[in-house]
């Protein structure tokens, strides 16, 4: 039972979840039509999928190590592997299934590889597929989100002394509102760190900070009152 550490970890986890959701390239329904760049699903859904994959690995790792950093990194890498495979396969599907070239719609030149984007874009669309800078952004998003989820799981498991099942569902319950608030902040589609919408990040961070802080206090209360029980 270490109240300060619990609150710190939960707040950090919430902030990272919010940041991760902003970094993920999300195209929503338009991406499924090749009308927007990014992954063809909603922010909350892909964030949850990545974080859950990370959480699974982190939970295995937590059974044989008690280092905070290693557990959190396990979760982060798990989520990153998930995002990487998804984005690569989405590209293969766009290319061979629909004949669409990956291209970013928000920038004319790829900020990382300096490849031109505009000539490859279909007119009246907002880009399609997962080009390189978007891919890197997605990797970072998966890493950050998975790290946040695993961090909360570890704090609830070891600092608040919850059982594995309780810690998992508790981490999920705090992770979800943060990811959803981020999704409300994004409103639809985002390409990653180079997207103009990314500048809205501070608003979501403030909200996440407040919500995670309150949730962290709640967890501390729950943990404090039940300490010594068979958690």
């Amino acid at each position: 039972m270490e109240p300060i550490l619990i609150i710190l970890c939960v707040v950090a986890g919430g902030l990272l979840a919010s940041l991760g959701a902003h970094l993920l390239p999300v195209g929503g329904a338009p991406a499924a039509m090749g009308t927007a760049t990014g992954i063809a699903t909603g922010t909350v859904q892909i964030m949850l999928g990545a974080a859950m994959t990370g959480l699974f690995t982190a939970a295995s790792a937590a059974t044989f190590t008690d280092s905070l950093l290693l557990v959190a990194l396990s979760g982060a890498i798990g989520a990153t592997v998930m995002m990487c495979v998804v984005m690569l396969m989405a590209n293969i599907l766009y290319t061979f299934g629909c004949g669409i070239v990956p291209v970013s719609g928000r920038v004319d030149v790829d900020p990382l590889t300096k490849e031109p984007q505009a000539p490859y874009k279909t007119p009246q669309t907002d880009g399609h597929g997962v080009p390189n800078c978007v891919y890197v952004s997605g990797m970072l998003g998966g890493f950050v989100g998975g790290f946040g989820g695993a961090l909360m799981y570890f704090a609830l498991l070891n600092y608040a002394d919850f059982s594995a099942g309780t810690a998992a569902i508790g981490a999920l319950a705090i992770f979800v509102p943060n990811a959803i608030i981020a999704a409300y902040n994004i409103r639809g589609t985002i390409e990653g760190f180079h997207d103009p919408k990314f500048k809205r990040l501070p608003f979501a961070m403030v909200t996440s900070l407040v919500i995670s802080l309150l949730c962290g206090i709640m967890v501390v209360i729950a943990s404090y009152l039940t300490v010594g029980g068979t958690m």
Binding site: A31, G34, A90, I100, T122
Partner: peptide, 26 residues
């Protein structure tokens, strides 16, 4: 999450719009 993010492209971009040109975003 994976079925929604990967598989939908083939159905949404290709099958639903098969009367539109192949090789471009819809």
């Amino acid at each position: 999450a994976i079925g929604s993010s990967t598989g939908d492209v083939h159905y949404g971009a290709e099958r639903e719009f098969q009367d539109r040109p192949f090789g471009e975003g819809k």
